[in-house]
């Protein structure tokens, strides 16, 4: 199994939306390659006729009636928002003013 390059580590960090310093990328590159060596050993296990298990305790998924029930108030739901505007979470504009029209 080939080792992760610095560019690959940077690509994964971008996918994960993690802003990393140059030093952090370097440390992670070393750590990840160490851990991938452990992962590689799984290739030794013969799973050609084995089904995958998302979980192993067999249960029937329960169904419920689709009826409204009380939930959090708007104030409670928004109490931790970093920025709030009325009953909304305030976020940065993602469209320019011109595009608004």
């Amino acid at each position: 199994m080939s080792k992760l390059t610095r560019a690959e580590v940077e690509k994964v960090a971008a996918l994960a939306r993690l802003g990393l310093t140059s030093e952090e990328v370097e440390t992670l590159q070393g750590d990840l390659n160490l851990i991938l060596e452990q992962w590689a050993r799984l290739a030794e296990v013969d799973t050609s006729s084995v089904p995958a298990s998302a979980q192993t305790i067999v249960q029937v998924m329960p169904l419920r009636d689709d009826t409204p029930s009380p939930s959090l108030s708007v104030d409670a739901a928004l109490q931790n928002a970093p920025a709030r505007s009325g009953d909304f979470v305030r976020v940065q504009a993602i469209l320019s003013e011109e595009a608004d029209g």
């Binding site: 992962w39 799984l42 290739a43 296990v45 799973t47 084995v50 089904p51 995958a52 298990s53 998302a54 192993t56």
Partner: peptide
């Protein structure tokens, strides 16, 4: 290679 493989090995562990 990784996630699906791990889900299969999980079956063997169980």
């Amino acid at each position: 290679a990784y996630y699906l493989k791990a889900q299969k090995v999980r079956t063997l562990i169980a």
